[in-house]
Simulated scan of single mutants.
Amino acid sequence: MVCLACLLPLFLVPIVNILPILFHIIMGKIYRVFGWEYRKPERVPPACPYKPPTTGVSKQAEADVEPISADPVKPGTVDVKKD
């Protein structure tokens, strides 16, 4: 015998997957009542998180940039609040 809590995901997953489709169908019908045209928004294809980006900083561009040198701070010249 299997508990009902274990079977619940089997019924919820298909329902959750159908929700976006039902949303677009309902929105299309609502827009049609008002005489407008409903267009589904364009979806961006999922990107692979492990694939390196196609555009990147080249090594030549990194070599052309000069490092910014920070001015050394002397211990006696630190801003001191004077009243």
Rank of each mutant, 00 (worst) to 15 (best):
M1W: 01
M1G: 03
V2M: 14
V2E: 11
V2F: 09
V2W: 05
C3Q: 11
C3D: 09
L4F: 06
L4K: 14
A5E: 07
A5S: 15
A5P: 01
C6H: 08
L7V: 15
L8T: 15
L8N: 07
P9H: 07
P9R: 07
P9W: 07
L10M: 13
L10I: 14
L10G: 13
F11P: 01
F11W: 15
F11H: 15
L12Y: 03
L12C: 09
V13A: 06
V13P: 00
V13R: 08
V13F: 06
V13D: 02
P14R: 03
P14M: 05
I15E: 11
I15S: 14
I15W: 03
V16W: 05
N17Y: 12
N17W: 05
N17P: 01
L19N: 06
P20S: 13
I21T: 11
I21H: 10
L22S: 15
F23C: 13
F23T: 14
H24Q: 03
H24K: 05
I26H: 12
I26Q: 11
I26G: 04
I26S: 13
M27N: 12
M27I: 11
G28N: 00
G28L: 01
Y31G: 01
R32N: 14
R32T: 05
R32E: 04
R32A: 07
V33P: 01
V33L: 14
F34R: 07
F34P: 00
F34G: 10
G35N: 03
W36I: 04
W36D: 11
W36R: 14
E37A: 08
E37I: 07
E37D: 14
E37V: 14
R39W: 06
K40F: 10
P41L: 10
P41Y: 03
P41C: 08
E42H: 12
R43E: 08
V44M: 00
V44W: 00
P45Q: 05
P45C: 03
A47P: 00
A47H: 08
C48L: 05
C48Q: 04
Y50R: 07
K51L: 06
K51D: 02
K51V: 09
P52R: 02
P52W: 03
P52S: 02
P53T: 04
P53R: 04
P53H: 11
P53M: 06
T55P: 00
G56Q: 14
V57S: 10
V57Q: 02
V57P: 00
S58C: 13
S58E: 09
S58Q: 14
S58T: 15
K59A: 13
K59W: 12
Q60N: 10
Q60K: 06
E62V: 04
E62D: 07
D64E: 12
E66P: 02
E66V: 12
P67G: 02
I68W: 03
I68D: 05
S69I: 13
S69Y: 13
S69R: 11
S69N: 09
D71K: 14
D71E: 13
P72R: 03
P72W: 01
P72I: 08
V73K: 06
V73I: 09
K74H: 15
G76F: 08
T77H: 05
T77P: 01
V78E: 06
V78M: 15
V78H: 13
V78R: 03
K81L: 06
K81P: 00
K82M: 11
K82Q: 11
D83L: 08
